[in-house]
């Protein structure tokens, strides 16, 4: 089974891209789809109705969505394999931009809208810097020069990413993505790991303490000024 993890901010065009991928592969591969979202998602209903593929969704609710993703992905891979899927697509809502949902196997795709701000690629951190492929969408809405400026910004963050531009509603220029999916290797489900580092372990905020200000918390605290501990991880 091939695995494709698609991430990106809301309204970037993840689902439009997913639809193009499913349209391209549904006749040659058995496709399964999982949507991870926080409050509401309709993609599972939409995609199963449009393409008659197997779909699931999971709401993270009060849990951090990336945390929820890590928790459920093991079960989800089992589910997709039990349904004899050849291609398993996971669409995750990238929200706080601290983490990225990509795994050490399969392909990680970040979807960015060309209407996003010029600093968006930097702000998105690991979601861009750990992706295998970056797809820039809505290219019909801006000038070529502006597209090239955005692409340069993405390359500054991640020089080795495979970049492509598309109008995802029409599915233009996606041959290269389809080739990469076709040639991606089957995953070994017992050896799946997160590519990025998870955030720092539990603290009083994680367990629900609401008071504002570091004095009210213990565990990992950070003041407005001053260093945090040397051993702490500071992003990719």
């Amino acid at each position: 089974m091939k695995l494709l993890v698609i991430a990106g901010p809301p309204s970037a065009g993840k689902t439009s891209l997913t639809k193009q991928i499913i349209k391209r592969f549904k006749d040659e591969l058995r496709v399964a789809f999982l949507k991870i979202d926080v409050v509401k998602a309709y993609e599972d209903i939409e995609l199963s109705r449009e393409f008659q593929i197997m779909t699931r969704k999971i709401y993270s609710g009060d849990l951090c969505p990336d945390h929820a993703g890590v928790m459920v992905l093991g079960d989800a891979v089992e589910w997709a394999e039990s349904k004899a899927a050849d291609l398993f697509i996971v669409e995750s809502a990238g929200l706080c931009l601290r983490c990225s949902p990509y795994l050490n196997q399969g392909l990680g795709v970040v979807v960015l809208s060309s209407m996003a701000g010029i600093h968006t690629p930097e702000k998105m951190g690991a979601m861009v810097s750990l992706a295998d492929i970056a797809v820039v969408t809505k290219i019909d809405l801006i000038s070529q020069a502006e597209r090239e400026v955005l692409i340069q910004k993405i390359k500054d963050v991640h020089p080795n990413v495979i970049l492509m531009e598309t109008n995802a509603l029409q599915g233009t220029s996606l041959h290269r993505l389809y080739e990469l999916i076709s040639h991606s290797e089957d995953i070994d489900k017992d050896n799946l790991y997160l590519k990025g580092n998870p955030p720092i372990g539990t603290c009083t905020i994680c367990v629900g303490k609401k008071e504002i200000g570091w004095k009210h918390h213990f565990g990992v605290v950070k003041k407005l000024d001053g260093q945090i501990a040397e051993y702490l991880y500071r992003g990719e």
């Binding site: 209407m115 701000g117 010029i118 600093h119 809405l141 801006i142 000038s143 070529q144 502006e146 400026v149 955005l150």
Partner: peptide, 9 residues
Amino acid sequence: TQNTKCFTD
């Protein structure tokens, strides 16, 4: 293109 607007800040 026909676009007469830039979005890049």
